[in-house]
């Protein structure tokens, strides 16, 4: 330890300069980050997450997640923000769009943008969406764009689901209509082949055919109603605005805000890096410093000559402190050099 302290004392001015440069740069970077970061935030009231995009536990898909509406919506939005296609759509709606699209590989830029978004649940039905940027307009535009693209995605997902359901119902409707036509044909043929009074057997047959026709018509009517409901329900829900209401619109902040954490991170990293570099310099300086490697090296000390050497004492598990304690025990006999003389 002492050689390291000696090296640090010897090169203290180098260490001070290194620490001053690194810590100073960290402080300046932190201040600039704090003073040039603007954050825009939107507060959203959420009713429920759309079932088509609902979150599920990726490890246990069959295990239902007990989540509030806010946490569901926050998770959903966070997942969307992890996808590059979503971010591309968001950026495309802002002034950053052309510059990002001009890049051949926009992955890094989109990842950096994603890190500036922050989505968190504020309560059971309230979430906040914020974006930190060096320009207040960009921060606001990004939040607005994210909410807009999210709405488009949800609507698109709802439409896709509706289309799928409508297609399924349409196939069943075609089948049901075919059955109804067939039942009607069967009744027409029966009426054509039977004139006058019907026997009891024919009456039963006619009643069976009529029942089949009625059931087919009811099925056709039911399917037509379902198709109408499937087409209208998402539109009605979207128009009512119950699912996702922006309570506080994002605004352009006039004063820097939201850069505290990055600024502290920068300053902290610079502080630790400075200490680490100083420690490394001291260690390297100690290792590389000119010291006596052996008796032959003593000629470098000028007129001073070697008087004697004291070998390193090796005893299993022993240290220099053990040696000193043993010597003291011999010399001082429990603290009293004259103990032996007194005894004798």
């Amino acid at each position: 330890m002492r050689p390291y302290l000696a090296t640090a004392r010897r090169y203290w001015w180098v260490l001070v300069m290194v620490l001053a440069i690194i810590w100073g740069a960290g402080l300046v970077a932190g201040y600039v980050e704090y003073a040039s970061t603007y954050s825009s935030e939107a507060t959203v009231w959420v009713h429920r997450a759309p079932q088509d995009l609902g979150a599920a536990n990726p490890d246990e898909p069959n295990l239902p997640l007990l989540q509030t509406s806010a946490s569901q919506q926050a998770d959903l939005l966070n997942q969307l923000l992890q996808t590059k296609s979503f971010l591309r759509d968001v950026v495309r709606k802002t002034a950053l769009g052309p510059s990002i699209e001009a890049q051949t590989d926009d992955g890094a830029a989109l990842d950096a943008i994603a890190k500036h978004f922050k989505v968190q649940a504020l309560g059971t039905n309230l979430i906040s969406v914020s974006y930190a940027a060096h320009d207040p307009r960009t921060a606001r535009d990004m939040v607005v764009a994210a909410l807009a693209v999210r709405g488009e995605r949800v609507a698109a997902a709802g439409t896709a689901a509706t289309t799928a359901v409508s297609t399924l119902y349409q196939k069943e409707l075609d089948l049901a209509e075919g059955k109804a036509v067939a039942a009607q044909q069967a009744i027409d043929e029966f009426n054509a082949s039977h004139s006058g009074d019907l026997s009891s057997t024919d009456q039963e047959e006619w009643a069976r055919l009529r029942l089949t026709l009625d059931l087919a018509n009811v099925r056709v009517m039911d399917l037509r109603n379902r198709i109408d409901q499937a087409a209208l329900a998402p539109a009605i829900l979207d128009m009512s605005g119950l699912e996702f209401q922006v309570v506080d619109e994002p605004r352009e902040e006039g004063a820097p805000h939201g850069g505290t954490r990055p600024a502290l991170t920068l300053a902290g990293v610079a502080f630790i890096a400075g200490l680490a570099l100083a420690a490394l310099l001291v260690a390297i300086g100690t290792v590389l410093v000119d010291h006596v490697a052996g008796p032959a090296d003593l000629v470098r000390l000028g007129p001073a000559r070697l008087f004697a050497t004291v070998p390193r004492v090796g005893r299993a598990g022993g240290t220099s402190r053990d040696l000193r304690a043993m010597l003291a025990a011999v010399a001082f006999a429990d603290g009293r050099p004259d103990a032996e003389a007194t005894k004798t």
Binding site: D290, V292, L301, G302, L306, F307, T309
Partner: peptide, 23 residues
Amino acid sequence: TPLPQVREALGKLGNATNAQIVL
């Protein structure tokens, strides 16, 4: 022991002392 410190110490003791080294 760093050699610069040893040289400095020997310099403080002075040549008249004729100090010698125990390694």
